[in-house]
């Protein structure tokens, strides 16, 4: 291949084909309009919208954001216009976007998730649905469905029959064994999982002796969480066969590549975009360069191409470990 050839960056998430594996994460770019003068949406794979809830939410009391070391805490509380407002105000905006539109939804219970999935499906502008079962900022229900495999199964089982759109379950990293939750989603109809949502965190102002965020606790994002996010991604990649969409602290093209090499089919760009709105586009360029550098034609050659020494790097019991165990059993069975 000559270096001038454009590598093929297309990837698939269920039935959705993305022109390249770079998305913008939920809560970062609104519904596309807010950043339209700063981001060339035609150059990236797609956006995930701000999460939509059934009823409008005003969000949490201020302050809602604070910068911490190499990251930030947020406690937005999913401020959004609700499903009706989504139909009235956001659908017309999404219709015209020149990239894939993945609509994020969050329900307080299974019935709400069902209503949201039906509503978003009917809106006709969604190319996929990201099922946000991992928000740390909306009270106890926010993470209920992604901190317990049974709950995750209940949501996925209920919403799967309601749409043919790809369903992407967005997971929280605030669990001991994320692979279990990912498996529950995969086994009950998720076309993909995306991770990580933010890590629960807090900050205290020692001068005033008050917590800095209005809600005391918030979610940590940004470069500080990238190694933590990668470890969670790696655990999930080994556990499930469905596509994994990775995010957490991506601040330069090489960071995006780390997630692809670890096995993600796509990445989502979050916090670092606030400083650098051109980041998603430069990640696309960086990935293309990398594919060329490998003298390959397609991004498929990068996905999961991390070189792991035999028997190393397995985090807890995941798919690979189970397969190994099976293979070992089969081998020993065959020799007896």
């Amino acid at each position: 291949m000559t270096p001038a050839t454009k590598p093929d960056l297309r990837v698939r998430i269920g039935s959705l084909e993305l022109r390249n594996p770079v998305l913008v994460a939920s809560g970062i770019i609104g519904y596309g309009r807010e950043y339209e003068r700063l981001v060339n949406l035609g150059a990236i794979g797609g956006i995930v919208t701000k999460t939509v809830t059934l009823r409008p939410r005003a969000g949490n009391p201020p302050p809602r954001v604070v910068e911490t070391a190499a990251g930030m805490l947020n406690s937005i509380g999913i401020e959004n216009p609700g499903l009706e407002g989504y139909h009235a105000v956001k659908v017309p905006i999404l219709r015209d976007l020149p990239c894939a539109r993945i609509v994020s939804v969050e329900g307080e219970d299974v019935a709400e998730f069902c209503e949201l999935v039906r509503g978003v499906d009917a809106s006709g502008v969604a190319d996929a649905i990201e099922v946000n079962i991992s928000c740390p900022n909306v009270g106890p229900h926010g993470m209920r469905y992604s901190t317990d495999a049974g709950n995750a199964r209940d949501v996925m089982t209920a919403i799967r029959p309601l749409t043919r759109l790809p369903l992407i379950a967005k997971l929280t990293p605030n669990v001991t064994r994320i692979a279990e939750i990912a498996e529950a989603c995969a086994d009950h109809g998720a076309d993909a999982v995306s991770l990580v949502n933010t890590f629960v965190g807090m900050a205290v102002d020692s001068r005033t002796r008050k917590p800095i965020l209005g809600t005391v606790l918030g979610g940590l994002s940004g470069p500080a969480i990238k190694p933590l996010a990668l470890a969670k991604v790696w655990e999930v990649v080994q556990a499930v066969d469905i596509p994994v969409v990775g995010m957490g602290g991506i601040a330069k093209p090489a960071d995006a590549l780390e997630f692809l090499l670890a096995g993600c089919v796509a990445v989502e760009i979050g916090t670092a975009m606030f400083a650098d709105p051109g980041l998603p586009e430069s990640c696309v360029a960086g990935i293309a360069d990398y594919v060329r550098g490998m003298r390959e034609h397609s991004v498929d050659a990068v996905i999961g191409a991390m070189i792991v020494p035999e028997g190393r790097g397995v985090i807890r019991a995941g798919k690979a470990q189970r397969e190994n165990a099976r293979a070992t059993r089969a081998a020993s069975g065959g020799s007896s």
Binding site: K50, V65, V66, E67, F274
Partner: peptide
């Protein structure tokens, strides 16, 4: 007050 995006996308700067 503190801001993140500055363009109305993140909802981080409520009054």
């Amino acid at each position: 007050g503190p801001m993140a995006c500055g363009v109305g996308a993140c909802r981080g700067c409520p009054i």
